[in-house]
Design a protein around this nucleic acid. Sequence first.
DNA 1: CTGTTAGCGCATTCAC
DNA 2: GTGAATGCGCTAACAG
Lengths: 340, 340
Amino acid sequence: MSSDVEGRTATLSDVARRAGVSIATASKALNGREDVAAATRRRVEAAATELAFVPNPMARGLLAGRTGTVGLLTSDLEGRFMLPILMGAEDAFGAGQVNVFLCDARGDAIREQHHLKALLSRRVDGIIVVGRQTDPRPSLGQELPVPVVYAYAPSDDPRDLSLTPDNEAGGRMAIEHLLACGRTRIAHISGDPAYAAAQDRLAGAQAALADAGLELVGDPMFSEWSEHWGRDAAALLLDRHPEIDGIFCGSDQLARGVLDTARDLGRRVPDDLAVVGYDNWEVLSTGSRPELTSVDANLQQLGRLAAQRVFDAIDGVDTGSGVSHVPVRLVIRGSTIARR
Amino acid sequence: MSSDVEGRTATLSDVARRAGVSIATASKALNGREDVAAATRRRVEAAATELAFVPNPMARGLLAGRTGTVGLLTSDLEGRFMLPILMGAEDAFGAGQVNVFLCDARGDAIREQHHLKALLSRRVDGIIVVGRQTDPRPSLGQELPVPVVYAYAPSDDPRDLSLTPDNEAGGRMAIEHLLACGRTRIAHISGDPAYAAAQDRLAGAQAALADAGLELVGDPMFSEWSEHWGRDAAALLLDRHPEIDGIFCGSDQLARGVLDTARDLGRRVPDDLAVVGYDNWEVLSTGSRPELTSVDANLQQLGRLAAQRVFDAIDGVDTGSGVSHVPVRLVIRGSTIARR
DNA sequence: CTGTTAGCGCATTCAC
DNA sequence: GTGAATGCGCTAACAG
């Protein structure tokens, strides 16, 4: 910032004047076009460096139509799922000289439209739409002038490209791990049954049990995604089905509640009762006693992938469409396998 | 997006043509300037609406020298403090037609410089620097062409403007509440003593106790910001000082650990032991049994304030400098006052 | 009150 | 090889 011309930040014409050439030549030289003499190019480049010249992206964008920016349109920044996705996306874009506009719709469709307009008017090159649940959300439509990728919450229109965690695989994985730990009398506690996430995880769990010739003990316990419900549901379940030796929970909060109740009832975890959570929300999963085995949705990876897809689409690569399920992984801790 | 002209997004000249006026008149009408006949204005506005006209910020910025964008430079998106600040800032800016560039330095000074350059080359009108601790951080310098406000982590240069939570007031508040609840034998458990936050909260607590002619019971217990340490520290404290009737914790995680230990030892909360946490991290503070009284740093408010300061500075209002301490508030729940 | 003119900073024809 | 001219979309002067 030190070598500005008269306090302004340097412009291309400043560079041209200093190098003793025309604006057009300076432009060509700096943009690496061929039809410019090597010596001239060096002079221009030197001048640009001395003036700390940085092309004005607005002037450039006005012509080119490409801005090197993308929009991140989140439905609601609150909630723990946004952040890792945001990080992944920002990371992937940042590495590619692209800057990210962050827009938070606060769960409001009107505001979302407003932000969408703002992003388009700024001529972003692409948009990632991040939802806070894995339930399908309304598509932004097919008429947009830039590629759009939906992350976490898939679009309800199959012509769109969506990336969402593979909750069914997560459910399978949790059960298969419990089975591998020798548990056969397994129950399931989850949150709001209206969530696709709750249903998908349950479906995966039931499929895995069926493969082993087993069934859930008791009915799946649905209510809300809270620690309180985890405590209450566990008390009810263990009272009615004392034989239970494993519980798969639809979230880490629920699992924390289950651990609490298990302790109250004198059930040792993992010896008497193995517990698996979901989300791998570290503050919960590593703060508990014992620490919590949990399914991790690889959200940061999901964010990076979404960014990659947007990149590809911008470059004209066909990225396909439909809902793509991103693999999840199981993080094993003391609530299923005792530490020595 | 439906009424675009020939597939392009509508431009001012499209609007002007449709309204049967000149471009300049259309511009004036839409920008609310006075010297336009009411009827003309209505015609232009109608045309703009029909064409879904949105002014191109790049063209606009090219003239104004102002882009209507700000940079949010975070040291590390991870961690729970960023999000509310981000939300507050995004909210405040979004309301003012300003869009936010999000840059995450990942705790790396090199990457921070790189992002700073990118932001400046995009001609942002201002920058908010968000740090993840309340310890002073290196200033970006005084030579920047745009106003900078530091949020959460203050700058180490008093010529900069910084907003940071008033941790000392938070400490005072917690103790005063415990005193008001009739507790007089109060201990303190905190995290890493190298954090300014830990020291400031302690200082506030000690000052409040001194005002009441009291002292902390035992030494402040410092180690790490974890639930595990909360459990261990509480066990140690209650063993050595069984008379303790109140514990002020430097974080909600610590407080959760304390609650756990209290239950193990058969101490009823809040009857035998009142517990105050810090941060009001809802997943922790409202999931516990009983729910946790906690100091809330009003981070969203802090983000909004920071945005407001940047606005003011952009508009040439003198925003002063130095570190400004944003008030905190106490959220009272069952861990200090029993619910009926 | 309205329209004409000029120019923000840059990349791109097209003559020279 | 180089430079003069044109225009991206818009707003600020001024003239009518």
